[in-house]
Nucleic acid binder design. Structure first.
Lengths: 187, 187
DNA sequence: GTTATAATTGCGAGCAGGTAATAATAGCGG
DNA sequence: CCGCTATTATTACCTGCTCGCAATTATAAC
C-alpha cells in the first residue's frame, strides 16, 4: 500500500515539474485516483496549486525577459568610462546553454559584447552598426565571461569605432570590431 | 467624456502590457473608477482576464525557454534546405524592445540570424565563427523580421560560408557574412 | 431645455480551480 | 478481527473572474 503511494507521489512530482499546467482533475485522471488523493499528495509534497504554479512560471519568465529586455547591459557593469571604455561580467547559467551541445549560444556572447559597446558609446539609437566579429571557442555553463569594450577611433565624424573582447579565465573567446554610425557628431 | 475613456483605455493597455499581474480591482483603484468599467474596457480592448494573462506569460516563457534553450532556431523556421539555405520569421514583440528607445535590441536580430545560420549549417558545435555583420536600420515592435541564410561557398575544407540577410517588409535591416570553422570536413 | 446616446455603476448568478475541515470507507499488515 | 493508513466523499468557502440585466449619470444633439 505504502509503495503505491510513494511511487505515485514521485511520478506526480516529475509530471508537474515537466508540465506545471495540469489541473488536479487531469492529474487524478492520469493516476486513476480521486481528486482528493491528488490534493493530499500535493500537500505532502509541498506542491502549490495550479494557479500558483503558473504564476511562478510567469514571474520567473517575466523577470528574466525584463533583465534581457529593459536593461542596457547584459551582464554586470564593472568598469565604465563614458565614451572611452567599459567592462562587464556575465556568469553563464544553465539557461543560456543549448542542452544538446552543452555550449552557450553565441547570441548570448554577442549580446553581452554588443550591449556593453552600445552602453559605452551611449547609443540607445543608432543609424547603422557594422561589426566584424569572431567567436574563437565554445563556452560552457559556469564560465565567467569578462567583456571589455574600448573606443579606438573617436576621430571620424558620425562614427564611433570600438574594439570589444570577451575572455574567460584569460583566454579570449570572442573579439569584435564595432563601427557605430550615429548620425550625430560625436562631440 | 469620450476623451477620458480613450485616454484611460490606452493607459490601461500599457499598464497591463507593463504589468500583466494586476487584478481588475487594482486597476479600478488606479483609475479611480469602478471595477465594471475596467471590465468593459478590457472587453473593448480585447484584453483577457488576469488568469489568462498570467497563463499566456507563463506559456510564452515556457515555450521560450524551450525554444531558446532546446531548439536551435529563434523565430519560426519557414524554409529549410539542409546545408543549402533556410528562412525563418520572427515577430518582434514588446519584450524584445528597449523601452527608452522603443527599438529592438540588436542582440535579438543577431540571435535570429546566427541561430538560423547554424541550423542550416547543422552546427551545434563549432570551432570558430567569424562574421562580418551590419545592422542597417533600427527595428520596432510589431515588425516581422524575415531572415534568409544561404550557403555561398561550400568549397573550402573545414569551413562553411554563409550569407544571412534579414528584411522587414522588403527593406533590409541586417546583413552578414558568416564563416563557420567546423574542424570536420564538410562531407 | 429636453431628449437621444454613450458611459458608468450596481447587483446576482454561475464557473474554474482551488483551500480547509470533517467524516466515511477500503485495504492490508499483523 | 483489530487497527492503521490510504483513499474517497461531502460540504462550506475563496478569488477573480464572465454574463446578463437594470439603473444611474454624463455628454451631445436638436
Amino acid at each position: 500500500m505504502r509503495a503505491k503511494k510513494l511511487l505515485r507521489q514521485s511520478e506526480l512530482q516529475s509530471l508537474i515539474d515537466y508540465n506545471p499546467f495540469l489541473t488536479d482533475q487531469e492529474l487524478a485522471d492520469k493516476f486513476a485516483v480521486s481528486i482528493q488523493t491528488i490534493r493530499l499528495d500535493r500537500m505532502e509534497l509541498g506542491i502549490p496549486e495550479l494557479r500558483e504554479r503558473v504564476k511562478m512560471v510567469a514571474n520567473d519568465a517575466y523577470s528574466k525577459t525584463k533583465t534581457l529586455g529593459e536593461e542596457q547591459i547584459i551582464g554586470d557593469l564593472r568598469e565604465f568610462d563614458p565614451g572611452v571604455r567599459g567592462m562587464s561580467v556575465l556568469d553563464v547559467t544553465m539557461e543560456m546553454v543549448h542542452p544538446q551541445a552543452m555550449t552557450v549560444g553565441t547570441e548570448h556572447i554577442f549580446a553581452q559584447a554588443n550591449s556593453l559597446a552600445m552602453f559605452v558609446a551611449d547609443l540607445s539609437v543608432y543609424i547603422r552598426i557594422q561589426a566584424s566579429i569572431e567567436f574563437i571557442r565554445q563556452v560552457y555553463a559556469g564560465e565567467r565571461l569578462v567583456c571589455t569594450a574600448v573606443v579606438v577611433d573617436p576621430g571620424k565624424e558620425n562614427e564611433i569605432h570600438m574594439d570589444v573582447t570577451t575572455t574567460s579565465s584569460d583566454a579570449v573567446v570572442f573579439s569584435g570590431k564595432f563601427i557605430f554610425g550615429t548620425g550625430r557628431s560625436n562631440k
